[in-house]
């Protein structure tokens, strides 16, 4: 599926999770190679949290297979030592201090780098001795990320880590994350409902909508595979036959198409343009939001 020789850190096949009658995740097949910072993008309720919890072994799938770092997620020390997980609500013990959390980590993990947390917090001016409940949201998120990184995990799973942060805290958080990832050997999957939050740091994308995977791959490869066509209002059946139509906007005067290319486009009536990551994501999300027409349904089926 991907032109990549890096071994996969995350590999799922037809993964599903149902909560009673609600399908939280359906037929999800993704691969995230080692060393990527992958953005898990999707509207609220798309299944991002469910996917992350399944990958961390906090929830069990109702169908399909998962391999994370080569094994099925399970609650045992060997597996857990390899992953770092940060839940959306940033759960920490509110009455305990950062120093207490560093000690907890030292007690619960065989591999633990408490010094890095101390240094990071001192650098950010976050008090070590103060109850975590009295810290600001940004400080708590920074602390939680530092604690998660102190395990020296090979895979970091972060659920909407910047959703509650103001722009400055968001920037600091992502800078901290990018710095950690630059050290090498770390793969990151982090979710957001806004692409703009993550666009700057991610080089891989998983797009979820309506509990299904819409898109998964390296950002550069995805951008190269897709193209925008702008032309007069005319019949586009020929283009749709040769390529995969993702999204179309038709006004009385012009037609704008987002296509997944199967070879070169040879229709002189259309001007081609490179697609931006945002246009790509909005195209796939918009396709889902519009309610897919039969043609689009087959297009999705072809993708996955």
């Amino acid at each position: 599926m991907m032109a990549s020789s890096d071994p996969a850190v995350i590999q799922t096949r037809a993964l599903s999770k149902r909560y009673r009658t609600v399908a939280a995740l359906t037929d999800c097949t993704i691969t995230v190679p080692e060393g990527r910072i992958s953005a898990l993008i999707g509207p609220n309720g798309a299944g991002k949290t469910t996917l992350l919890r399944l990958l961390a072994g906090l929830a069990r799938p109702t169908g399909g297979d998962i391999a994370v770092l080569g094994t099925a997620p399970r609650p045992d020390p060997a597996f857990l030592a390899g992953i770092g997980f940060l839940a959306q609500e940033i759960p920490l013990y509110r009455r305990m201090s950062a120093a207490d959390h560093i000690r907890i980590g030292a007690h619960l993990n065989a591999r633990w780098d408490g010094t890095s947390v101390r240094q990071r917090l001192e650098g950010l001016g976050i008090p070590l001795g103060q109850a975590v409940g009295t810290l600001s949201g940004g400080q708590r998120a920074q602390l939680a990320l530092a604690l998660t990184l102190a395990k020296r995990p090979r895979l970091l799973l972060l659920d909407e880590p910047v959703a509650a942060l103001d722009p400055l805290a968001r920037r600091q958080f992502l800078a901290h994350l990018a710095e950690a990832a630059a050290g090498g050997g770390l793969t990151v999957l982090l979710s957001s409902h806004l692409l703009s939050d993550l666009e700057r740091i991610c080089d891989h994308l998983v797009l979820l909508a309506g509990s299904r995977v819409q898109l998964c791959g390296d950002v550069d490869a995805l951008l190269a595979e897709h193209q925008i066509l702008v032309g007069p209002r005319k019949d586009t059946t020929a283009i749709e036959r040769d390529h995969t139509l993702v999204h179309a906007v038709r006004t009385p005067r012009q037609t704008t198409l987002l296509i997944r290319r199967n070879g070169p486009v040879i229709d002189p009536a259309f001007e081609t343009a490179d697609v931006s990551l945002e246009e790509l994501v909005l195209g796939y999300m918009g396709q889902h939001a519009d309610g897919p027409s039969p043609a689009h349904l087959s297009a999705i089926g072809g993708d996955q």
Partner: peptide
Amino acid sequence: ETGTAQFAWTQSISRS
């Protein structure tokens, strides 16, 4: 209730 189980259960310790 507070979600701290998710913190504890993703440290390197088995749930049991």
